[in-house]
């Protein structure tokens, strides 16, 4: 293929990637170093609001943004360096908490609290996702041809459901005296409140996430199982390898590149955990990094939003994902190099 043809094919997608990925990323990156604020002036304002029968009037000093001659709010943008990052990380408070040995004080700082949950969530669901995915793939592979189609369809169902909707349904099943909580109460004979403490909510979130993403792992691994060398399996059988040994020494090594691929996708997805926080409305007990960014970004009722801190928090989330991906990426790179 000559360069012209190549460019014509690749050009549009590079353009799209620049427009929708690179430029927003650069914009967020630069916004995290700047602060844009309106200029406020303090003015005495009298406000009259309705009471039940008569009005209440209050006169007080209020901060009102200045308007320019077109009636727009005057805003100034200034470079603040790493200030927004410092505001998100609260390193001083974190260091004080660590030196005084108080895990509780450390975990009362939003960023570190969110990081703790995000990491536990990501690292615990990772092996469960791969394990369950492999199990489902093996079941599909061993199912007789007649039922294979329906089995694939059913095991894919959780993956089709929109994440927020799925999380909300689980929420309703367990909230208050929801069907499943009532069933557990009947079985154990105790009063159970799944949303009253952090660990039960975390557990529900992890179970939900694994249930939701395992079908993806399963379908990828099932495809991988089709290419396992049947001769190797047969010779292992002749050598007296048990079912477990065949899986451990023949099948899994063969699937390893796929497992690394699934792990990378899962690390990227799980580190951005957000739907579960919203769906289970767990903010009182548990928050995630992505939720923190969202919370900075949502305007309060008076219209204030923390764009700079949201940008800093988004950049930190990205850095976190990159750090997590280093190990599997190195492995892939090594394998790739070894293969040539």
């Amino acid at each position: 293929m000559n360069f012209k043809t190549f460019a014509a094919f690749v050009g549009p997608s590079i353009f799209m990637m620049l427009l929708f990925i690179a430029f927003p990323l650069i914009s967020v990156f630069s916004q995290s170093f700047y602060l844009t604020q309106p200029i406020y002036e303090i003015i005495e304002v009298e406000t009259c609001t309705p009471g039940f029968i008569t009005q209440t009037c209050v006169t007080e000093e209020q901060s009102i943004p200045k308007l320019d001659e077109h009636g727009d709010i005057i805003k100034v943008t200034k470079f603040v360096g790493l200030q927004s990052y410092r505001n998100v990380l609260e390193l001083e408070r974190a260091w004080d908490a660590i030196t005084s040995g108080s895990w509780r004080a450390f975990q009362s700082i939003d960023f570190w609290k969110a990081l703790r949950f995000t990491l536990t969530f990501t690292l615990i669901t990772l092996p469960l996702n791969i394990g369950l995915g492999l199990a489902i793939a093996l079941v599909i592979n061993n199912a007789s041809k007649a039922v294979r189609g329906p089995v694939i369809f059913i095991s894919l169902l959780p993956f089709i459901i929109t994440p927020v909707i799925g999380a909300l349904s689980i929420n309703w099943l367990f909230r208050g005296d929801g069907v499943l909580t009532a069933a557990m109460e009947w079985y154990t004979g105790r009063d159970i409140a799944m949303f009253a403490q952090a660990w039960t909510i975390e557990l529900l979130m992890m179970v939900y996430r694994v249930w939701h993403v395992a079908p993806f792992a399963a379908i990828v691994l099932y495809a991988g199982l089709q290419t396992v060398n049947q001769d190797s399996l047969e010779s292992a059988l002749i050598d007296g390898a048990t079912r477990w040994q065949r899986l451990r020494y023949v099948v899994i090594p063969h699937l390893m590149p796929l497992i690394v691929f699934i792990s990378m996708i899962h690390l990227m997805d799980a580190y951005r955990v957000f739907e579960e926080i919203v769906g289970f409305s767990s903010q009182g007990h548990v928050i995630s990094l992505q939720w923190l960014t969202y919370d900075f970004l949502v305007p309060d009722q008076a219209g204030n939003r923390s764009i700079s801190r949201a940008s800093a928090s988004a950049m930190l989330t990205m850095i976190g994902i990159i750090v997590l991906l280093i190990a599997p990426l190195r492995r892939t790179w090594r394998d790739h190099k070894g293969g040539h």
Partner: peptide, 27 residues
Amino acid sequence: LPYPASGPMGIMHTVLGNGLADYLTGA
């Protein structure tokens, strides 16, 4: 009393809503 609506109060309401749970859960 009427709700004391203002720009600063918008921020106050949000940080109150996010920060009170730690007291109620005993953290």
